[in-house]
Amino acid sequence: MRVVGIEGLCGGVGATSVAAGLAVALNEMAVRTIALDLNAQNHLGLLFGMPLEQLEGLVNQPGPLVNSVLETHEGYPFMPMGVARSVQERARFEASFAQRMEPILATKERILVVDAPAAPGPLREWLDIHADLMIHVIQPEPRAVPALLAFERDRMPQQEASGRRARILINGVAPHLQLANDMLVFLQSEIHRDRLVPVVIHRDQHVAEAFAKQQPLVSYQYEAQAARDYDALALWLIGYLAQHDHTDATQPHGAS
């Protein structure tokens, strides 16, 4: 199992949407991918059509974690976080998580797209250890500057020390807005090109509408530009994973 973490550099930049879109696009390309929600907000499932009232998830699962893999109509697998009923339940879950993930990690030829936890803790530590790639999402808006500075101060040195790989993805590109476009140019000039994902995701009203409809974006509007951007991101990711670390080469199924 190759693990890809998606994490917002600050809140509300659309990391959860990117995680869902990426997982769907990979599955559409016949790369078996599970979307895993480690974010306490428990939003990822909603993007896969999970009903609002369902609060069950990983965190309440006493048995093997595989049991909490759900599937959409279209067959996209996802693992919602669930809402902890008590602090103890959450603590128990966090303590046993690493060990209980092992059987899932041992599966071959799968990708695990993880919606990363917003706060530091055991889950994030687990992700930092196991992620083949961390994708940090940022939006071309003024908030990006302090977020980027904080990232350079804190996370980046840690990642570099531990040899983890990380890339920055720009989400919500809006060429028609002067400020957004200027910020895009600024970010592209400030972030070293080796650290930047060479794909951008457009700001697209379809994304919000798909969320409102509780459908994956491709099911809601196949021709949406954001859906095509997720495809491009998935394609880039497959190439990236194939290029880095050959221990578990990810091949699209049915390619041979």
Binding site: H202, R203, R228
Partner: peptide
């Protein structure tokens, strides 16, 4: 991009300095 900020993928078929021809999805 439509005026409601829905973005669609399209194909540019031709262009000049004043106009362009595009192919857009049927559902657009």
């Amino acid at each position: 991009m439509t005026s409601s900020e829905h973005v669609f993928q399209a194909d540019l078929i031709d262009y000049s300095d004043t106009g362009a021809g595009l192919r857009v999805p049927e559902s657009c």
